[in-house]
């Protein structure tokens, strides 16, 4: 490895250390990989000692977000079936920050933005009622998954989530989504 590469690698490591990064993956997601990631995250030394509710909320959010990439993510490079994205897990002030990024079609952004903002604007009772409403009124095996998924994420995180869209080409935008789960010490 050339000297410059070693230096770069060392800089990354130091940056990961400084930002308390517990887990990171960038690549093409599929169901088998999601299973492995959940297993790895639950077994991380920093996570293993957490209360069961914290661990379940973390793996729940990771599953919802990554399955969402598998179902709706876009590959802008070659349009193949691969579902590229990125997952970053870090700890900050006793809470776990789960950041997920993937490309989406820009023409879907405004609908997505509206829906996320709608869920974000609801209080706990509103979310509970909305969840019930979506559950009852959507058809079996229809395209309800992402709707309920976001409501579940909002409930598991006590509505601590944030998102952003950035145009990366004429047709696609990068969607970044960050969810915060309270660690046991902050519960």
């Amino acid at each position: 490895m050339p000297e410059q590469d070693h230096q770069e690698f060392n800089t990354w490591f130091e940056s990961f250390q400084a930002n308390n990064i517990l887990f990171m993956f960038k690549g093409d997601f599929n169901q088998e990989l999601i299973n492995s990631i959940v297993l790895l995250i639950e077994g991380l030394p920093e996570v293993e000692h957490e209360e069961i509710i914290v661990k379940k909320r973390m793996s729940g959010v990771v599953v919802e977000c990554l399955q969402n990439i598998c179902r709706h993510g876009e590959n802008i490079i070659d349009g193949s079936e691969l579902k590229p994205g990125m997952l970053l897990l870090r700890k900050k002030n006793g809470d776990y920050l789960i950041s997920i990024g993937n490309n989406v079609k820009t023409n879907k952004v405004s609908k997505l933005r509206d829906y996320i903002a709608k869920v974000n604007g609801m209080d706990n009772t509103g979310l509970k009622d909305f969840h019930k409403d979506v559950l009852i009124n959507t058809e079996l095996f229809g395209k309800y998954g992402a709707d309920l998924g976001l409501i579940n994420i909002a409930r598991k995180s006590n509505r601590n989530f944030d998102f952003d869209f950035r145009e990366v080409s004429d047709t696609h935008s990068f969607f970044s989504f960050e969810v915060s789960i309270h660690g046991s010490e902050n519960n």
Partner: peptide, 9 residues
């Protein structure tokens, strides 16, 4: 654990 897609079934 069950995901959001399992609620409806």
């Amino acid at each position: 654990y069950f995901n959001s897609s399992s609620y409806k079934p």
